[in-house]
């Protein structure tokens, strides 16, 4: 039998990015500990809707921990009090009856609040568009595994590619820096042969876009790595720094091709 609990939620409510937000206290009663955190919010929203009030906006999609859509800073921690999971994978058994839960959106100038707990993460899309892609020739589909890649390198690239772009790294960072995200995206291509064509232009273009979006600067606290639901490592940031500085100091001719 599931245990049931009553909770006090302090939820950030904000009409849109033009208005100021504030915390609103909402009671969440008769919540089963088997529910996910988002299911708990669904129940709360059903209650609010029945009462004729505006439901709490929050982002979600797959609810399987792989899409990177859900967010929420729960009691000061991105994706809640557990490590290595997204908010949709967090269950109410991680909380206890009578607990007060503070729910905030990702807080960063580059992630403006759309409404309540949903933020605009298109800054990440623009960083990707600046260089997070590879050239692919048109024509027939090449045979698989025609390019030999050492298992070690393939694994490392795969580790970086597991980033789901949720933005928890930005939310966790005291400086609201996006370097873990950007470094994972740069790394996955820098490691593989297919990514070599744009390798050094990519590092520069993506870092430039990251800076232009208004993210903060990394101070190597490691908070991003600790809070990342996919376990993206700080070594990615070291690799990004290396790629960028190498591009700037040793591969400058690559960017003089076009002007």
């Amino acid at each position: 039998m599931a245990q049931h609990m009553n909770l006090t939620l302090k939820v950030w409510r904000q009409k849109n990015d033009k208005t100021k937000g504030q915390f609103v206290t909402i009671q969440a009663n008769n919540i089963a500990d088997d529910m996910s955190f988002l299911e708990m919010l669904d129940i709360v929203n059903e209650d609010l809707t029945r009462k004729g009030e505006d439901p709490v906006y929050f982002d979600h999609d797959c609810r399987e921990g792989i899409c990177g859509m859900c967010s929420l800073v729960i009691n000061g921690r991105p994706h809640g009090p557990k490590y290595g999971i997204t908010t949709c994978q967090l269950h109410m058994r991680s909380f206890h009856d009578g607990q007060t839960i503070v729910i905030e959106p990702w807080r960063a100038a580059a992630f403006p609040v759309l409404k309540d707990l949903a933020v605009d993460r298109t800054a990440f899309d623009r960083i990707q568009q600046a260089g997070g892609y590879v050239n692919v020739n048109t024509g027939g589909v090449p045979d698989a595994n025609t390019i030999a890649i050492p298992k070690r390198i393939a694994d490392e690239a795969f580790e970086s590619a597991t980033c789901i772009g949720c933005g928890a790294c930005v939310a966790a960072c005291k400086n609201a820096s996006a370097m873990l995200f950007v470094s994972a995206k740069i790394s996955q291509f820098a490691l593989l042969p297919q990514g070599q064509t744009e390798r050094y232009e990519r590092a520069q273009a993506m870092v430039d876009q990251m800076d232009a979006e208004g993210f903060g600067n990394c101070t190597n606290t490691g908070a991003c790595e600790a809070e990342c639901p996919k376990g993206i490592k700080l070594t990615n940031i070291a690799r990004m720094n290396r790629e960028y500085l190498t591009a700037k100091f040793f591969r400058e001719e690559d960017v003089h091709v076009q002007s």
Partner: peptide, 23 residues
């Protein structure tokens, strides 16, 4: 870095993810 987060968190769980001196 301050400008990158204009609104601070009401609750901050920094000690769960990083060392005091690094912050």
């Amino acid at each position: 870095n301050r400008a990158a987060r204009p609104i601070a968190y009401a609750q901050n769980g920094g000690k769960a993810n990083s060392k005091w001196n690094s912050r």
